[in-house]
Design a protein around this nucleic acid. Structure first.
Lengths: 233, 233, 233, 233
DNA sequence: CATGAATGAGGCTTCATTCAT
DNA sequence: GATGAATGAAGCCTCATTCAT
């Protein structure tokens, strides 16, 4: 018979099932986007990779752009969580330690999920057309309708806020000594990550560039950034 | 009537004419690629921008990929010249000053010609598929036949060599104090430039990010790199 | 427990329920078809408009074509009823008056239910492929199976019959003076309605064409038709 | 050698060739649209019918909508020419005769080129969205860019003007006696044509409806209209 | 040399219809 | 009965590339 609880259970199952399949498709999409880039990726192949038809991909995500934005949203959620965790774990440590931890987190995120970084950057490029009338590129209808594009807008500022907040804490507890604005330090750090990722991408599977292992490179960069935070320059 | 010199003159004219038109098309292509990216750029529009037909573009450059590689080649030539000049001008200065000058050159190059930087990076990504069997992406037939792709391979290592050479000079004259390998320092610097450019790209016409003008950001990054070269960390 | 009457009652309920839901869906379908046309209408939207799922629409009507034919059938039923009523009310009047009343009825039907008129016309176009081997367009499988398509065939000639019958009565009672065949007069009248509806459609919400209100136009057309019936031309 | 005249000749040839092919494609498109309707017609098939590829159709006409508007434009040009001719030929006759001739022209046009009539009507429906903000349907980008859609706007009022002008002439020379506005008479006539065409369409290849040959029907309608023009009702 | 013309090979998206639960 | 999910079969349009003149 019908009863509330049963109905509820069915609903949960359905939602769960849907979420699971959405996840499967998203996973497949990530693989395809990662290996071929956004432009070269084909919806057909994403479907195949997920073991469903192209139309099913459209059933779950309404457009290629929305699908990509779903990945960008995943990326942001992931990054935010990693950063919240980092801040939480560094609660009892100095502001400097926390910021360094956040940097490590950034590198880890970027290295582990290069596609996520790219998707986030693309998201930011795309949103530029929204926020300012100065840029000529027009948003497509599909992007305007994209649910995930909208969802992303609610959370895309969390990383800056966190880093800036921890830098301020470091300045207060004097573990950080730097007369530049927290935002400047944030951008420097983030720029370092982005540059590093480009190089890692160039290194490819070889994992080294001009005989330098990318891991060593990262460590050196972090060291330089650390230095930058603790020195008045 | 016919004589050798005359023929030669005609040839020169022909060559010159051809070179001039090639240049016009390349200029047009740069504008289109810069404003729309490689994938979104259309051969038709490049032709229009150059005031010639699409077919003419194909007459001078055999494929879209080759055209793009011609730009990458231009980019490398330009960068190499700028770096040769920088080194030449710093001949009488210390190694450190020379390296700093090279960094400034890099930033200048990247800021002035963002497309060139991108084209060079794409070149490097594309060449990876050539040099190593480990990467799955296959080079297209067009790229394999690309004259400019081949020409680029002869000169693409000059920047590293120059920077490394000047770093070594700086170590010798003790203006640079750093126990890391010159290649590591090179990569750090280059990575910084690449990251900076991404941020500049994100900033768009606004020219600032989180209220920080991109110019200030660049200055700060150079300062940090300078510090990194003169400190044992 | 089980008994015939009870079972009958349950059956009635079931039938009633089914009929009610069918009606809801049909109503929704009318709204969608009316505002977007047959080709642009989507089964999904019809379902949404009716508050049910697309699959439910298919449960009650087996295909888009059958659904549309159900509307055509509704249209014919409606028109027939309106015409029966008109004839009934004009029973004591002259044949001319009855025919004029029927014309008014036609205009009223067409103006109030433009979709019905269109659906009837489409039905007639579609049926042509059935009745004659001379037309190349083939009926789809769905149309061949359409229950409503078949039902419509039983009643689609009623309007002509009624009008012709009343015209004959008018000729007999000499209120109509016209040496042309009743069918000719019928077609003229019907053609006038169809043309008028096209114009009304073109007028759109403006309700006027070249400054002429569509209402005035209708009145004039009726006047001309009236004249045509009472004059030997 | 190059010379102006030669170049001119070449240009003429090119233009002629292009015009010829455009015509071929347009002819093919007419056949397809006529037999299947706008929605059911496929660009692929239009290409096949014209003996070219789908892409070639797009080379000459930029979109399906523009292609259809090209036909609407052809239709208007044709109708306008026919009407100009009719007016010209009736110059020495009475206004009434001229108007009757114009009506005959309308019927001839509609009967000979039913697709043209339909295309013109569709054009008028589409343009409604342009001219008034009251209609909700939005014009597609393709329609907005349609060259032929724009061209049509320059000439779509010619028929009304001509008919109205000749009716006025008829009123002046007293061959027409009717107290209604010329626009009303125009609409009545045009509506009659549209209605007649619907019926002809229903008749199909059979060319008769309820045993009435469509030709007879047309004659009767013209007679009624004639009567309407010369009688005060 | 230059170009108008032509096209093959897709790519994104839509939708009527079916099916498992 | 009802529906969420799934899909095959198109359809419109694009574009790098080729070729005849």
């Amino acid at each position: 018979m019908f009863n509330f609880y049963n109905q509820f259970a069915i609903d949960m199952t359905r939602r769960t099932k849907r979420a699971l399949k959405e996840n499967d498709i998203l996973d497949a999409a990530e693989r395809i986007f990662a290996s071929q880039g956004y432009s070269n990726a084909k919806m057909e192949n994403i479907g195949k990779e997920a073991g469903v038809s192209k139309a099913t991909v459209y059933f779950y995500f309404e457009s290629k752009e929305n699908l990509y934005m779903a990945i960008a949203f995943r990326a942001m959620t992931m990054l935010n969580n990693m950063m919240y965790d980092a801040v939480h774990e560094s609660k009892s440590k100095s502001g400097l330690d926390s910021v360094l931890q956040l940097m490590e987190t950034y590198f880890e995120f970027g290295s582990k999920y290069p596609l996520y970084t790219e998707a986030m950057l693309d998201y930011m490029t795309w949103i530029r057309s929204t926020s300012s009338g100065t840029d000529e590129a027009k948003l497509t209808e599909a992007l305007k309708d994209s649910l995930y594009f909208k969802k992303a807008q609610d959370i895309h500022n969390i990383p800056v806020s966190l880093v800036v907040q921890e830098i301020k804490r470091g300045l207060r507890d004097q573990s950080i000594k730097n007369n530049n604005s927290p935002e400047m330090l944030y951008l420097t750090a983030w720029g370092s990550v982005l540059g590093y990722l480009k190089l890692v991408n160039l290194a490819g599977k070889k994992q080294s560039l001009h005989k330098i292992p990318t891991g060593d490179l990262k460590n050196y960069i972090v060291k330089v950034l650390h230095h930058g935070l603790t020195t008045v320059i």
